[in-house]
Computed example of a mutant assay.
Amino acid sequence: MMVNNILRLLSLLAFACSFPFAVEPSPLQDFCVADYSSPVFVNGFACKDPNLADGTDFFYSGLHLPGNTSNFLGSDITPVNAAHIPGLNTLGISMVRIDYAQGGLSPPHTHPRASEILTVLEGTLFVGFITSNPENRLITKVLQRGDVFVFPVGLIHFQRNIGYGNAVAFAAFSSQNPGAVTVANTVFGANPRIETDILTRAFAVDNSIIDSLQLQF
């Protein structure tokens, strides 16, 4: 009987472990400072000798500087991830500073590998995300200075500055490399292009509209 119970337990563990988990693996040492010069290709960066690590490996300076919002979106992102702080490698976190000009937009996009928590430091933002099919429910909120909002992993979301001046926000991610898939750029700026007839059927519009959108991106 005990043997049968043990076999059942092992079967359940094997079954549970067969499902992928949407988290990054836990570090197996105190830290893994990225060795950008290593030729070894791994999921992240290879580690340098921990005895060679110092304070500069865990440090970044520059988030006090405003981004350049003189673009058609009126927004700019300053990232801080494992490519900027070697000591972030394998820790499963990262962050960005987002600057918005008046009316500036962070367009609909997703982060395929991370949830996001955003804090407004200055200004007023209208933010939202869309739930997955089939509901496709839009969930929105107006944020003021000091407010915090969460965007669940993988869901399309956006932010827009609806105040009368510039806005600034900091966002943190549950991945050292959350990735970003901007909907318009990805669909209409694919290289090589997605065939026009696929997009005309998907968006229920004429070929000329698709051609025009592809030229924009």
Rank of each mutant, 00 (worst) to 15 (best):
L125I: 02
L13P: 00
V183A: 15
I210R: 00
I98C: 02
T124K: 15
I162Y: 01
E122N: 14
I198T: 09
D147A: 12
E116A: 10
N191S: 14
Q214W: 07
T186N: 12
A169G: 08
F41C: 07
Q159W: 01
Q214V: 11
H84N: 15
L91Y: 04
A169V: 00
L121D: 09
V120M: 05
R201W: 00
G74S: 08
S174D: 10
A184R: 00
N177R: 10
V153T: 14
C17T: 14
S106D: 11
T140G: 01
M95Y: 09
L105Q: 02
Y36L: 12
T124G: 03
D197H: 14
N136V: 06
A22I: 07
S18K: 09
G62V: 08
L91N: 05
S11C: 12
I162C: 04
T69C: 01
L28V: 12
S70Y: 07
I6F: 14
F45V: 03
I130M: 14
L215T: 13
Y100I: 00
R113N: 13
G62K: 10
S38C: 11
F149G: 02
L143Y: 04
S174F: 02
I117S: 08
E116W: 06
N191G: 03
G163S: 08
Y100L: 01
P108Y: 01
V148T: 15
A114I: 07
L118S: 10
S61V: 12
L65Q: 13
T78E: 05
N177G: 11
K141P: 01
G146T: 05
F188D: 05
Q159V: 03
N43P: 01
V42Q: 01
Q214E: 13
F15H: 09
L199A: 04
D147H: 11
I209T: 15
R145D: 02
V120T: 10
A180G: 08
V153A: 13
N166G: 12
V96I: 13
R97H: 06
T140E: 09
S106E: 03
F170C: 06
L88Q: 05
G179A: 04
D206G: 13
Y36C: 09
F58P: 06
V181Y: 07
L9F: 13
V183K: 01
Y60Q: 07
N207Y: 10
L13D: 10
F72L: 10
T131W: 02
N89T: 11
N185H: 04
D54T: 13
G146I: 05
Q216L: 13
G189I: 06
G55T: 12
T56H: 15
I198G: 04
G92R: 08
P25K: 12
M2S: 14
L121C: 12
A114L: 08
I98A: 01
L52K: 15
H157Q: 09
D197S: 12
V150E: 06
V153D: 02
N51W: 02
G67K: 00
N5E: 14
E195R: 14
L63M: 14
S26W: 07
L155I: 08
A16D: 11
E122M: 07
T140Q: 11
M95F: 13
I210C: 02
D76T: 04
L88K: 03
A16M: 14
R8E: 10
T78P: 04
P134S: 09
V42H: 06
F151S: 00
F15W: 11
F170I: 15
A16Y: 13
F173P: 03
A190I: 08
P192L: 11
N161M: 05
S37Q: 13
T124A: 07
E122L: 09
G44R: 05
L199G: 00
V168S: 05
N136I: 04
K48W: 01
